[in-house]
Computed example of a mutant assay.
Amino acid sequence: MVKKVFIMFLLVSAISFAKEKIIIFHAGSLSVPFAQLEKEFEKKYPQYDVVREAAGSRACARKITELKRPADIMASADYKVIDNLLIPEYAKFNIHFVTNEMAIAYTEKSKYADEINARNWPEILLRKGVKVGHSNPNLDPCGYRSMLVAKLVERYYGINGFFEKLFGYGESYENGEENKKKVVVRPKETDLLGLLEAHAIDYLFIYKSVAKQHGLKFLELPKEVSLGDSKLADYYKSATFKITGKKPGTWIVKKGAPMVYGITIVEHGDKLPLNKEGAVKFIKFLLSEKGKEIMERNGQKFIEPSVITGDASILNSE
């Protein structure tokens, strides 16, 4: 009898001390800073267990809208993914919180690594035997941004047909259509890091922040090409690429634009977030001075003040 009572006590104690989960779907490019945020957040709020799942931003959104996966927060490498795929049914607001820019990552063993520079990199990527990686444009913003960068190259460097010569795509990307002798595609940009480090590819279209976080060599692109300068918004618009829409058979035309990340609290139909209080606390922690320090340490510039669109009144409910 005493043994049974003791076991019951242990079970009750375990339940009372069980941590509340905060489920976060986020872009692969946020993996490193969000791991650090998780550690610091749980140190401040030990009652919570942050559970993160990284994927391409559009893939994250579709886990929520199509697969009906439970989540409290979604953070996207392109704020427009939240606007286009989650709002209004699965989210009510969008916070633009950090920026980034595109870069070309490589290693010392990449072909022509000793030659490449900001002037000749388009020509080197077109050379025979050079393998190039990018993420899937239909799943990951880094993928369609890679396409937009390649199109801006034609205008800035005056190289006619660069986009088609490099990728061989038309105005959109269908899975498996890449020239496998030249191009390697994976669901998200961080999936390609291992291939680069294993020398299975020579060059990788990737975010500058990710290249810095992983200690990679990378080529800084001219601001007219990098999608990293808010003053060049009109210039970037000249590049366009089609990606799949909300429903099968529909398309969204992506235009070049300065890179801005977005974050929101997920609402599941007519239900409130699974962990409303925890989600609000995490968002506020992200937007705090500590959150800013972590993001900027990892190569992503904080937007100050943060731009909030939609109804963010939930943030005042804590």
Rank of each mutant, 00 (worst) to 15 (best):
R52A: 00
N275V: 06
L274Y: 07
A113W: 00
R145M: 15
T244V: 04
G278N: 05
I116N: 05
E293L: 02
A312W: 04
E115K: 09
E189I: 08
V183A: 03
L287C: 10
K180N: 04
V184H: 01
G129F: 04
P222N: 09
V225P: 11
K63P: 01
V98I: 13
G299D: 00
E171A: 14
F17C: 14
S226M: 15
G256F: 09
K39S: 12
A150F: 04
S209Q: 00
E174I: 12
D114Q: 07
K247W: 06
P187I: 07
K290N: 13
K165C: 02
V12T: 04
T65L: 09
E197M: 08
A91R: 03
L86I: 15
K80Q: 15
A211D: 11
H134Q: 07
M1Q: 06
A61Q: 13
K111V: 03
T99F: 03
T250P: 02
P305D: 10
G249R: 05
K92S: 12
I303A: 01
S288N: 04
T264G: 06
Q47D: 13
D229R: 07
C142D: 13
E174Q: 14
K128N: 06
V280T: 03
A14Y: 01
F163L: 06
N175S: 09
G262H: 14
M1K: 14
S226A: 11
A59E: 10
I206Q: 09
F34V: 08
L166Y: 06
A118D: 07
T309H: 08
Y261R: 00
T240A: 08
V32Q: 11
K284A: 10
Q300K: 03
E123S: 13
F34R: 08
F205P: 05
A91L: 01
G262I: 12
A233D: 09
R58M: 13
E220P: 07
E289Y: 01
D72V: 01
I283L: 05
A113N: 11
E89L: 11
Y156W: 13
K182R: 15
G291L: 00
A14M: 15
V81Y: 10
I116W: 07
G158Y: 06
Y106N: 02
K4G: 11
F17A: 08
K80A: 13
Y236H: 10
I308F: 03
G143A: 06
K131H: 02
R52N: 05
I159E: 12
A105F: 03
S230D: 15
I159R: 11
L86V: 09
R186N: 12
V149L: 05
K44A: 13
F9T: 08
F17M: 10
G310L: 08
V149Y: 07
A233E: 14
T264R: 04
L196R: 11
L219I: 13
